[in-house]
Simulated scan of single mutants.
Amino acid sequence: MGGGKIDVYMDIVSLYSYLAFLDLQRNGDLLKAHNVEVEFHPVLLGAINVGSGNKPPWTLPAKAIYGAHDARRSIARFPGVVIQTPKDLMAVSKTIVPNRALHFIKSHHSPSAFLTALHYLMHLFWSPPNLNLTLPENVAKALLECPADFTSSSSSSSSSSSLSSTAAARSGQEGEKGKKLFTKQQVEEIMKGVETKVVKDALKNATQEALDKGAFGNPWFWVTNGEGKGEPFFGSDRFHFIYKFLGLPFQDVTLSPPAGASKL
């Protein structure tokens, strides 16, 4: 069938949203070839938990223990991407400022600039030394240092306490080294925009939209197929269901025979 749209509701504080983003970026060209549009909507996970009556998984001890195993296995699907959970995740979980900044960028800059900024902020949040993005000054500095061609594959795996030095190391091609995504004036405009009612409402409305579509966590997908039918999907490991719903060709999980053995 082909065609359709994937709306992704996500908060940078959500590890699995980051992994879903990486998966969708990895398959971006193929999705475009199948005429599938992907749109990311920054939301507040905490507000979704409250609005849906859900609780963070680590509040249940058994889930917390299992979650460590699940996270390790999920991260392993992206070789070369260095991920480290912040020491005090709850202390840095109120990502209102960066999510508002992303809404401003989304409405005032190109789609590619929005995706690059989104990627870079998630990378800084989830990679050592884990930048605290609840602080406006850190968000501003991150946007000012964001490489114009940032990708996880071009990032440095070495940790550093200096955002400036890590940003320089994370530049992509040698010819583009030092080129930034935003100018100082643009970053100032973004940070001013964070405080406007329009941007505050954009984040609030996106969060409510996710709740209205049944969200109880992140990443939350609302997928519309080529026939105009929409359904919800939850989690970073549900793409086989999403692709089937969209009518896309994909290789499902298959079990192979032992090495050297004939087919059973």
Rank of each mutant, 00 (worst) to 15 (best):
Tyr9Trp: 05
Ile12Asn: 06
Tyr18Glu: 04
Asp29Ile: 11
Lys32Val: 08
His34Phe: 14
Val36Trp: 01
Glu39Cys: 12
Pro42Met: 02
Leu45Lys: 03
Ser52Thr: 08
Pro56Met: 08
Gly67Cys: 00
Gly80Arg: 04
Ile83Ala: 00
Gln84Tyr: 02
Ala101Glu: 01
Ala101Lys: 03
Leu102Val: 05
Ser107Gly: 03
Ser110Thr: 15
Ser112Asn: 13
Thr116Pro: 00
Leu121Glu: 02
Leu131Pro: 00
Val139Glu: 00
Leu143Lys: 05
Cys146Glu: 03
Pro147Phe: 04
Ser157Gln: 11
Ser158Trp: 07
Ser159His: 09
Ser165Cys: 06
Ala167Met: 07
Gly172Asn: 10
Glu176Thr: 14
Phe182Tyr: 09
Gln186Lys: 04
Glu188Lys: 13
Glu189Val: 06
Lys192Arg: 15
Lys192Met: 14
Gly193Lys: 03
Val194Gly: 02
Lys197Glu: 14
Val199Pro: 02
Val199Gln: 06
Lys200Phe: 02
Ala202Asn: 09
Lys204Thr: 04
Glu209His: 10
Leu211Ala: 09
Trp222Glu: 01
Thr224Gln: 12
Glu231Arg: 11
Ile242Phe: 06
Tyr243Leu: 08
Val253Leu: 14
Thr254Val: 15
Ser256Gln: 15
Pro257Lys: 13
Pro257Asp: 12
Gly260Lys: 15
Gly260Asp: 15
Ser262Asn: 13
